[in-house]
Computed example of a mutant assay.
Amino acid sequence: MSTQRHQPFDTAPASVHPTRRRVMGAAGLASVAAVGLSACGGSDNASSDPTTPQAPTSPVDVAATSDIPVGQGVKVEKDGLQAVVGQPTEGTFTAFSPVCPHEGCLVNPANQSYVCPCHSSTFDMATGDVQGGPAASGLAEYPVTVQGERIIVG
C-alpha cells in the first residue's frame, strides 16, 4: 500500500496570492519611495555636506547696491556661489552662507535677519550670529567689497 501525500486544497481567494506583476510593481514603488525620501533629507546646497558651506573660490559680482534696501537681504545663486547678502545698516553690506548649521536647510532673508524655514533658527543680518532657535552656531561669513555701485562677494 502506498501512501500518497496530498497537498491541501487552497481555498484562499486569488487576491491573497500576489501575481508577478504585483510583486514587481510593489518593488518599483518601494524604489521610488526610497529615492523620494532620500531627497527629502537633503538640501539645495551643492556641497556634499550641507553643514560645511563652500566659500566662494573667486569674487562674484552679486548685485547693485541699490538692489538691496537697508534692513533687507537677498538670496544669491550665481557663478557657483550660494549666499545671502544684506544691508543691515546704510552702506554696510554683509554676505553669509545660506546653509543653516543646524541641519543644512537654506535660510531666507526676513526683517534684519535670516530665518531657517525648517526649524526657525534666526541669524543676525549684520554678524550671522544665532539670535534664536536650535542652531548652536552662526552662519559662515563671506568677504564683501563694494566697487562703485556693485556688491562683490568673495
Score class of each variant (00 low, 15 high):
residue 120 S to I: 11
residue 134 P to C: 13
residue 5 R to G: 05
residue 100 C to F: 04
residue 35 V to K: 01
residue 149 E to H: 06
residue 105 C to A: 15
residue 154 G to W: 04
residue 47 S to A: 15
residue 107 V to G: 10
residue 48 S to L: 12
residue 124 D to P: 04
residue 131 Q to A: 05
residue 1 M to I: 15
residue 63 A to C: 04
residue 114 Y to I: 06
residue 35 V to G: 02
residue 150 R to M: 03
residue 3 T to R: 09
residue 54 Q to K: 11
residue 137 S to I: 12
residue 141 E to P: 07
residue 75 K to F: 10
residue 71 G to P: 09
residue 38 S to F: 14
residue 90 E to C: 08
residue 94 T to L: 02
residue 53 P to F: 12
residue 108 N to I: 13
residue 148 G to P: 01
residue 16 V to C: 04
residue 80 G to F: 13
residue 94 T to D: 05
residue 61 D to Q: 12
residue 51 T to Y: 02
residue 9 F to I: 07
residue 80 G to I: 09
residue 84 V to K: 09
residue 38 S to M: 14
residue 151 I to V: 15
residue 29 L to H: 02
residue 34 A to T: 15
residue 95 A to D: 08
residue 139 L to H: 14
residue 109 P to A: 09
residue 24 M to Y: 05
residue 49 D to K: 12
residue 2 S to N: 11
residue 101 P to R: 06
residue 65 T to C: 05
residue 121 S to D: 08
residue 85 V to Y: 09
residue 1 M to V: 14
residue 27 A to V: 14
residue 9 F to W: 05
residue 93 F to S: 08
residue 36 G to Y: 07
residue 109 P to Q: 08
residue 22 R to A: 13
residue 28 G to T: 07
residue 134 P to L: 10
residue 71 G to M: 07
residue 63 A to K: 04
residue 145 T to D: 01
residue 72 Q to T: 15
residue 80 G to K: 12
residue 46 A to W: 07
residue 18 P to Q: 10
residue 42 G to V: 09
residue 16 V to D: 12
residue 149 E to R: 03
residue 98 P to A: 13
residue 121 S to Y: 06
residue 79 D to W: 04
